[in-house]
């Protein structure tokens, strides 16, 4: 259950997408995410999925990794779909357990699932093709304006990077503690809510303690490696735009326009 440590981990490869400036990738991912909320037609989603597969090929990231990640999120998807399908009113197609399943319900749920899959694929592409350091550098650059409010973008960026590293470590740790408590008879599967909650507290406390110990260790390790706050640092990764970034921007712009226009034309909606 807690073993999703490979979701969204950087996948090193030599590709055009990897070489794009992380700021551009961050921006494009943001625009893409917005775009997905504007689209309603199943046809355009299908088209979009094909486009995504092409970009993954271009990025030399095996589709297998993506499919595995999506598979892991499937239960959540299906549960929310299951709830929605019973709630939407309209033309009844068939009855299931005495509840009307409507055409509108089916339509809306299938669109929802495809939309979420498209969203996930886009965001994961960003994580697969951008190393944490680049991502951090990009966030740092984007957060620069915060400096006027006396917030240090460098420190936020370092915090983000540390978080990326520690999430899988802590997930593993949580699983270990859960097993240790189970071995002492903790009732995580109990049907009584109170017992169940109590069992989960036996994970939360040791996890908090271990996290604070780790934080302490890490602070010492960082200090030993000459960390002295976010100011006055050079960078291992220096960001600079290249011609590719311009192409990527232009192509993406065209793509967005294309999808929006298709979306406006009712013709494609009829197909669905």
């Amino acid at each position: 259950m807690l073993n999703n440590m490979m979701v969204g981990q950087f996948f090193a490869a030599d590709s055009i997408i990897h070489k794009l400036d992380p700021r551009i990738k961050l921006l494009l991912t943001f625009v893409y995410t917005l775009l997905m909320f504007f689209i309603e037609s199943m046809f355009i989603f299908t088209f979009n999925i094909l486009a995504i597969i092409m970009v993954y090929k271009l990025a030399r990231v095996p589709l297998k990794i993506l499919i595995k990640s999506i598979k892991r999120m499937l239960p959540i998807l299906l549960i929310s779909a299951g709830i929605n399908i019973f709630l939407i009113q309209g033309e009844t197609v068939f009855k299931f357990l005495g509840i009307n399943i409507t055409k509108q319900g089916l339509c809306m749920v299938s669109t929802m699932i495809v939309r979420i899959i498209c969203l996930i694929s886009g965001m994961l592409l960003l994580l697969y093709t951008t190393s944490p350091a680049e991502l951090v550098a990009a966030i740092e650059k984007i957060l620069k304006p915060l400096k006027i409010f006396k917030v240090s973008p460098e420190e936020i960026a370092i915090m983000f990077s540390i978080a990326l590293h520690f999430v899988p470590v802590l997930l593993l740790e949580a699983e270990r503690i859960m097993n240790a408590q189970r071995a002492r008879g903790a009732k995580f599967d109990s049907k009584h809510l109170k017992e169940k909650l109590k069992a989960y507290i036996t994970i939360v406390i040791p996890l908090l303690i271990s996290t604070s110990n780790r934080a302490n260790d890490l602070a010492i390790a960082m200090e030993s490696r000459c960390y002295h706050g976010g100011e006055n640092r050079t960078r291992f990764k220096i960001l600079h735009y290249s011609a590719y970034d311009l192409y990527a921007l232009l192509i993406s712009l065209l793509y967005v326009l294309l999808l929006l226009i298709f979306n406006k034309l009712d013709f494609f909606k009829i197909v669905m």
């Binding site: 981990q9 950087f10 090193a12 190393s131 944490p132 350091a133 951090v136 370092i158 990077s161 540390i162 990326l164 590293h165 470590v169 780790r214 260790d217 890490l218 390790a221 960082m222």
Partner: peptide, 9 residues
Amino acid sequence: PDNQFVTSV
């Protein structure tokens, strides 16, 4: 070993 790294690459 886990507690001395600041990034994942």
